[in-house]
């Protein structure tokens, strides 16, 4: 029985070997062309997911569909847009018993919004991101009767930057899009 010395070639250059070499060269050329095309339009830093606050419908999916146990989406406060209202409709549940920080008066299911007195009659509202689950209830409340300074954003220190964001595909507002990683937020700014 013929035992080839090494490297598994039966004949010096068999037909199959020839075919393989050709296919390999073709594959390398194809790969080279492909990477060439991609490189000419490539970006270095890449993309991250973000929510366009103008398109978000506050549906609640952000709280439940992130691959993380606790969603990477959080409510953020555009302070310059906030009215610092005493009766914040993003903070208080509709018709609260009294304007105190007791949990039953709050809209937020996790009491993630901190209400601190600034000066009469103004209160600052900020979000404790360790508590916020991104449900968007306060965003809706603030938008309905207030200035709309609360809005949802993916927080990139928490986000895993999934190749496909699990919330994006269930977002009824089609509010998710890829944004350049150098400017990874779509912040609300004061209306000019």
């Amino acid at each position: 029985m013929p035992n080839p010395p090494k490297s598994g070639q039966v004949n010096p250059v068999s037909r199959r070997q020839f075919f393989r070499n050709g296919a390999r060269v073709a594959a390398m050329t194809g790969l080279g062309a492909l990477t060439g095309v991609l490189a000419t339009r490539g970006t270095a830093a890449g993309w991250v997911w973000q929510i366009d606050p103008a398109k978000c419908l506050r549906c609640g999916n952000c709280a439940t569909h992130c691959v993380l146990e606790q969603s990477a989406v959080k409510c953020v406060q555009a302070y310059a847009q906030c009215g610092y209202c005493q009766l914040c409709t993003g903070f208080f549940a509709p018709e609260p018993n009294e304007l105190t920080t007791a949990a039953e008066n709050q809209l937020c299911p996790t009491s993630a919004i901190q209400r601190t007195f600034v000066e009469d009659p103004y209160y600052q509202y900020s979000i404790d991101e360790n508590l916020c689950i991104g449900c968007g209830k306060c965003v809706e409340g603030c938008l309905r009767f207030g200035n709309g300074s609360f809005f949802l954003q993916i927080r990139h220190d928490r986000c895993l930057h999934c190749n496909e964001c699990a919330i994006a595909r269930v977002c009824p507002g089609e509010a998710f899009r890829r944004v350049p990683a150098q400017s990874p937020y779509l912040l609300k700014s004061v209306a000019k």
Binding site: Y79, G83, Q124, N147, D157
Partner: peptide, 25 residues
């Protein structure tokens, strides 16, 4: 804006919205 952002008199400094970056390049 429905409610005008207040002009504070107590020297209150307004916080800015933080933007924690993603994974470094």
């Amino acid at each position: 804006l429905l409610f005008p952002p207040p002009e504070f008199e107590s020297g209150y400094r307004m916080p800015v919205t933080t933007t924690p970056p993603g994974r470094a390049l």
